[in-house]
């Protein structure tokens, strides 16, 4: 019995990581109106950068995480300004094709730079540490940190989007781009800022993922699919919905993995497809 409860707690905490994967995609779908197929690959690229910062440059893990954040923001901003914005006049299909090309470039770039080996960042024991929650139920310190980070990111994003002028402008361009032009909002600049926010979530995802799970240059695709499933399950109504979506996928994977380790990924996909068939608008759609 405690074994089951243990698994559920693990899954919920893993859901936090999945939510961070998905937050950036939710912003890009909601505000920029396209899906960046390279989202997962950018996350993995951040994991590799984390590896370089800690292993090759010898930075402590928390410092490396902090360094990663401005890098993520810069990459996001540059991608939007230099690449996606140029395709904005074309249709959605073309933007997908561009991000597809980007995905192939990043995957193979990482393969060329780091080789095909599976990697992991060691964080000096924190990944092993666990604390006693209640009774004889324990939770890993790292998963707890990641879950709390997910909650903080959600609170932070909601504060930025609903409480600041910048956020109101970003929501305005998402809501009615034609009207936004007529009242003089600077669309290109605001979209680049939104993409920089996406980049920050990618940096945080990649940094935390590199400590928790193994990764290799081709890991991006599965991260993208998880992020996509979480965003669609959640609907675009609220960032907290993204956390719920992340927990659902993580629970499905955990239970699938309990039947047979090969069912782990499959169970996540199947639960997604079934929920999607019954609730295509997502669990927390925009009202």
């Amino acid at each position: 019995m405690t074994g089951l409860l243990d698994q559920i707690i693990q899954a919920v905490l893993l859901g936090g990581l999945y939510a961070i994967f998905a937050l950036g995609l939710a912003i890009s779908v909601g505000v920029l109106k396209f899906i960046n197929v390279a989202h997962g690959d950018l996350i993995v690229a951040m994991s590799f950068l984390m590896l370089t910062l800690t292993n090759s440059l010898g930075l402590p893990v928390p410092v490396a995480l902090i360094v990663l954040i401005p890098v993520g923001a810069g990459v996001g901003w540059l991608l939007q300004f230099g690449l996606f914005q140029r395709a904005a006049s074309q249709n959605e299909l073309q933007i997908i094709l561009i991000t597809f090309g980007l995905s192939v470039i990043i995957q193979n770039g990482l393969l060329g730079l780091y080789g095909a080996d599976t990697r992991k960042v060691t964080a000096g024991g924190i990944e092993m540490a666990s604390i006693n929650l209640f009774g004889n139920i324990n939770a890993g310190v790292l998963p707890l940190i990641i879950f709390v980070t997910a909650c903080l990111l959600i609170v932070g994003l909601e504060q930025i989007l609903y409480r600041t002028g910048l956020g109101i402008q970003i929501r305005a361009i998402a809501d009615a781009p034609a009207a936004a032009k007529l009242v003089g909002l600077r669309l290109a600049g605001l979209m680049a800022v939104a993409m920089a926010m996406v980049g920050i979530t990618e940096a945080v995802s990649g940094g935390l993922m590199s400590i928790w799970t193994n990764f290799d240059p081709s890991s991006g695709s599965s991260r993208l699919l998880i992020a996509f499933e979480v965003v669609v399950l959640a609907g675009l109504g609220s960032f907290w919905g993204v956390l719920v979506g992340g927990i659902i996928i993580a629970l499905a994977q955990t239970f699938g993995g309990m039947i047979d380790s090969a069912f782990q990924m499959l169970a996540g996909h199947i639960v997604f497809l079934v929920l999607f068939l019954f609730r295509p608008q997502g669990l927390f759609p925009k009202t």
């Binding site: 109101i168 929501r171 305005a172 809501d175 007529l182 009242v183 909002l185």
Partner: peptide, 18 residues
């Protein structure tokens, strides 16, 4: 050409920003 999913106050503020 309002922003339909923003509040009245947010719509007005947009004018203030630009």
């Amino acid at each position: 050409q309002l922003f339909p999913n923003l509040t009245i106050e947010e719509n007005l503020k947009i004018g203030g920003y630009t």
